[in-house]
Design a protein around this nucleic acid. Structure first.
Lengths: 246, 246
DNA sequence: CGTTCGCTTGATACCGCTCAAACTGCGTGG
DNA sequence: CCACGCAGTTTGAGCGGTATCAAGCGAACG
């Protein structure tokens, strides 16, 4: 079974069998982090690439007066590095939204991998560019989308991203976020999220119950959200896992 | 006289004299783009790094119904690449906010530079990370800052960034943005920007006249904006140009 | 079995939007 | 030199979307 990282990179570039084997070998031991706790890279190798294997996390910033903004949501297969080794100072926090399992690729291993495999190198480059494209789209959402459009857009995005790592099916996906999490991600209050959610449910396009999202009307939801998946830059069909190697 | 690119990179890393010379040599001929027109990389080398020498530009997205969001503002020294060569599809537009002069570093030259100079390589890496940190901070602004806080924050940010490339002094900086540009950057309407601007002026902290911003009360403005310059990751004192080479 | 966390609902206030009109400065052409 | 047009700014009136404050509810959990 491929790791979520392998699956995700395959959404950008087709990886050869050896690429996939090398990548699997590069992953270190798993670490577990409790829900609602911060992920601090207290690792001995601050340059290592940290990757989420299971669970959801987020990057966020918080003001002294308590206002909090989630600036990105990190799913399995996503890198969750603060890049402290290059930037010296951490400018945001990373928190677990649910119990999270992490692994890491030591810096030396990562460098060797990049040198050896042009395929992996391109995949990681595209992954990084896609991450900032997502950040741009969030800027658009917060700036120009209405409450219901924002919510719909976030659901569309998360569903697609989960699909890419094999954690969703066509019908829906897990949705561990509380209404307060959604509020902090979408720049609103949880009270208003609640009302917007009722409106969305009322439209019949989705069901959200017991931490699971079901999408009944993909087209409708995407139209409402003004969702154009191009910004995710998944150039290869999602979720099509190659048969496991050898 | 150093190019804005050199100045900006020096805000991250001290460059040796040879680094600066190599960098200056790498720059291609200048191209001019009219204000309000889109910058399309119709260049023969789509992988080349395009850099702004003069003028302001922006990345933006626009909906079919006309809503427009500026997702980042590009100043002299900033790279303005769509990365189409890696991402296949353009997911946003780049427009000139004022007349812009561009140059480019051909891909081959850039690669050679990265291989030769670890200093330049680190500088460009930090530059890229700082750019996404700025994008994150915009997400925070749009999500959690009030109208007046947003405006104040944008002014603080632009002033610092211009300072870093030697285009501002302690008192203030050029501000070619129209109120409509500000509105599209801050996710509001130009009418409201106008009123917020009056409030800011009324506080006595700034003057904004004939495309020039003067900041009378830096501390007050930064406090109002909840501005913490850490996210810009300028680790070296701004604007301290080294004496010209040779 | 009590406590906590997350969700829901209601009443009210206000921030920012919409629509509309007028004003200003400036470049252009008659 | 003046008339005009245009882009950008300013102002006003009214509305609507979202926040705020507060209370109650249900289910999970120790």
């Amino acid at each position: 079974m491929d790791s979520p990282l392998t699956r995700k990179l395959q959404s950008f570039v087709r990886l050869s069998e050896t690429d996939r084997l090398w990548l699997a070998d590069a992953l270190g031991p798993a670490r577990r982090i409790g829900a609602r706790s911060d992920i601090v890279a207290e690792t001995q190798d601050p340059r290592a690439v940290n990757v989420i294997l299971e669970g959801w996390a987020c990057r966020y910033k918080q003001f002294a007066d308590g206002r909090r903004q989630i600036v990105s949501i990190l799913l399995p297969g996503d890198a969750c590095d603060p890049h402290v080794f290059l930037l010296k100072e951490m400018d945001h926090a990373i928190g677990a939204l649910s119990p999270v399992t992490l692994t890491q690729i030591p810096d030396a291993v990562f460098q060797r991998l990049m040198g050896r495999s042009p395929g992996l190198e391109e995949a990681f480059q595209r992954e990084a560019l896609a991450a900032v494209a997502i950040q741009r789209e969030w800027t658009v959402s917060l700036g120009r989308r209405s409450a219901i459009e924002r919510l719909a857009h976030l659901f569309c995005e998360l569903h697609r991203r989960l699909l890419a790592v094999g954690l969703a099916d066509a019908a829906g996906c897990p949705m561990p976020l509380t209404q307060l999490d959604l509020a902090d991600a979408l720049g609103q209050t949880s009270v208003h999220i609640n009302r917007t959610l009722q409106e969305l449910r009322g439209s019949g396009m989705i069901t959200l119950r017991s931490r699971h999202l079901t999408i009944h009307d993909h087209d409708g939801l995407q139209r409402l959200a003004i969702f154009d998946p191009v910004y995710l830059h998944f150039t290869r069909p999602a979720g099509k896992a190659e048969p496991a190697a050898s």
